[in-house]
Design a binder for these strands. Sequence first.
DNA 1: TCTACAATGTACAGCGACTGTAGAAGCAAG
DNA 2: CTTGCTTCTACAGTCGCTGTACATTGTAGA
Lengths: 169, 169
Amino acid sequence: MPQKEKHQAKKSRANMSIGTLAKTAGAKVQTIRYYEEIGIMPRPDRTHSNRRTYTQEAVKRLRFIRHARELGFSIPAIRAMIELQSLSGGPCARVDEIAGQQLDVVRAKITRLKALENELTRMLNCCDGSDIATCRVIEVLSDHSLCESEHGSPENINMVSEKTLFPRN
Amino acid sequence: MPQKEKHQAKKSRANMSIGTLAKTAGAKVQTIRYYEEIGIMPRPDRTHSNRRTYTQEAVKRLRFIRHARELGFSIPAIRAMIELQSLSGGPCARVDEIAGQQLDVVRAKITRLKALENELTRMLNCCDGSDIATCRVIEVLSDHSLCESEHGSPENINMVSEKTLFPRN
DNA sequence: TCTACAATGTACAGCGACTGTAGAAGCAAG
DNA sequence: CTTGCTTCTACAGTCGCTGTACATTGTAGA
Ligand SMILES: [Zn+2]
Ligand SMILES: [Zn+2]
Ligand SMILES: [Zn+2]
Ligand SMILES: [Zn+2]
């Protein structure tokens, strides 16, 4: 057993180390430091030996960030939502708008990926598996006009980014 | 009108410049140079003033790469398929296997994105749009236990990469 | 108390697949 | 000759982390 567990168990309601925060909220230690660096996690207090100490607030914040990331939100989108939360009070229309944009992004990705699935399935079904010189997979990959659909360019469907959140002013 | 067009029209069956190749095959000039650098486009001949000159072979090769990229294949996967083509002759089983792996990747992405779509739709439907303090979107983003599904971590579903193509030997 | 090892600190490089930039040089047309 | 386009090389930046190197600190067992 890691020593840390015993150590932290004793003072479970006191401030926690970065490692404990990492385990509690489901992130890597480096990721937490990275979030601090880019300013979406607040800079925590330090011990006399310069180590970060976190409160329950930090756990909540980090859980929010991680879960939003798991749901595909970009860092700028998350940053915007955090700022909206911190100016507490007022309607949530803007938050819902950001989530709605994220939903649009997800749906666009699904549409594209279904087109890819279709093309890949088709080319694999049409290949008789004999020779490379006549392989249908190679043929289709060499010539988009053999495709059924306009499947678009690679990963042009991006996340809700800075640009979509804050259009060119 | 760009001068290039007139210029190139005169000698359309001769070697072409990198800009003409870019337009013909649908890529950016820098991308072509990048492909050369990483070794999936062969190094072309140069003019006396050090400019790249391309043949129809290069057009074919670049079209293959771009179309495979549009269908989501990774560079290592494309590199492998190019090598399989160049050792011409033999069955296409390996090519089809790579395409099959790509299909698996695409299907896994679709599955995950559908889960995300579901969660996003649910949280947006449940929000009454009144106040940030009670916003359902914020609530769900703060607490994964309010989700219906295990929607997984961000972008853990990767492309067919070096590792999947050449598992640890 | 000594020793080992775990955890933390900073700083920086790397991933994938490009894209954009800087600065120099060439090339053709008006 | 000047203007404007293209090309050349080299390198930095994108995104969201992840991994590494090396130094320091904290803790537990002997
Ligand atoms: Zn085949
Ligand atoms: Zn196609
Ligand atoms: Zn709301
Ligand atoms: Zn969830």
